[in-house]
Computed example of a mutant assay.
Amino acid sequence: MVIRWIIALVGVVLAVALGAVTFVIVSATIPESLVPLSFAVSNYGLYLIPAGLLGMGIGLILAQRRNAVVLRILGILVGMVCVVATVAACVPLVASWREAGRQGTQLSIMNYLTGGTNTGDPVETLSTPYASVDGTDLLMDVKMPTDLVEGRRAAVIWVHGGGFTGGDRGEGPEWHKWLNDRGYAVFAIEYRLTPPPRWEQAPGDIRCAVGRIKERATEFGIDPARVMLAGGSAGGNLALMGAYADERVAPSCPVGDTSVAAVTAFSPPTDLSSGWYDTGSPDYSHRTLTDYLGGAPDVHPDRYAAASPRTYVRPGLPPTLLMHGTRDHVVPFDQSAALTTALESASVPVTLVPLPYADHGFDVTWGDWATQISRDTFDDFLARYFPAP
């Protein structure tokens, strides 16, 4: 009997957890405390199905006639919750596979199960300063392909995320390797973090890095006319700022040409004022934006406009790829959708890829559906607008 009660306890805990997950899946708006569950659905959703099947099995065991009435009732309830949760867990799965079909992506269950994580640390042996600003060396990790090519390589400058307050140039190592494997040189850069407010300095550091890398093109064996920016979250904002900004955003070091040929952004905040009001994680968003800009939008509206890529939209900007989760509770999908509309109105080539049920930081797991779709669409974008030699 003790074993049956232990099984019942496990079943109840599993049912509660899966019930919460079901609520997250079916509800577009969720409490901030449940955002981590949304991340779990985004990055590990496939594993919810066997969890639901396990719960159904526990329900069947408890519902047997020889058990006490209480156990039978618990078994029926656990089983019902787990049936609903299993069906709900299939919804993001089906949505992802349908989007993959629209994008022409072949999803792999094996890659999902074995892809691992996309996290790492700076590689000190590859690090070199790209500038010294206010007595601080700003570093970049230079990651070169191992194959031999004739001529100069195209280069991707990778800007890390971290809410403008954290993160480092070690972020996204699988993306760096993925780009290296396709023949691109990768420069994973750092920039000055908040506090104090860095709404002017951080975009200036990005433009500085672009200019300095171009100046050292011969040293690195790259083509200075074939440089692009990429990044996610805050890094996506800064990559777009580096690609779009005009004379109102001064480089933080003396450089010449800071133009880029293309830009890619994952889950970027494109209008920081809207990001203050329209977010599923207000505590986090308000804290990071206050640190970065020195206050709320009603206090510093000029700063919020100056630090928003949408402010700089105009004809002639480089081709842009935006990849954004439709269930992003930190930076809502509408941020990329609105920027896409503005770019289309300015006749700027832009591709927006909606990633069903993906939340912020989806590419932390290298094999999940959203990351697989992103890799394929990124590959297509590079082939069309920024091919490697």
Rank of each mutant, 00 (worst) to 15 (best):
P197G: 10
M228V: 12
P224D: 07
R192T: 09
R216G: 01
G242N: 01
G183S: 08
A243N: 03
W158H: 15
E219N: 03
D181V: 06
T165F: 13
W175Q: 15
A243T: 04
G172I: 11
V159T: 10
P173H: 11
R216T: 02
I222R: 02
Q201R: 14
W178V: 05
R226M: 09
Y244K: 04
G172A: 15
N237C: 11
A239V: 02
V159L: 04
P195Q: 07
I189V: 15
G235Y: 06
I189T: 05
I189Q: 04
G232C: 13
E200I: 12
G161E: 04
S233I: 09
L179P: 10
F220E: 13
G221H: 10
V186N: 13
W178T: 10
A202K: 03
I213K: 02
D205V: 05
R198A: 14
G231D: 10
G170D: 15
L193S: 04
G172V: 10
G170S: 15
G167Y: 08
W175D: 15
Y191H: 05
L240W: 09
G232E: 13
Y244L: 04
G170L: 14
P197H: 10
T218I: 00
F187L: 11
P203M: 03
A188D: 09
G183A: 14
N237I: 11
P224E: 07
G242F: 00
A239R: 00
F164M: 14
F220I: 08
R169D: 06
A185R: 06
E190C: 01
L193D: 01
G166L: 13
V210T: 04
G204L: 03
S233W: 09
W158Y: 15
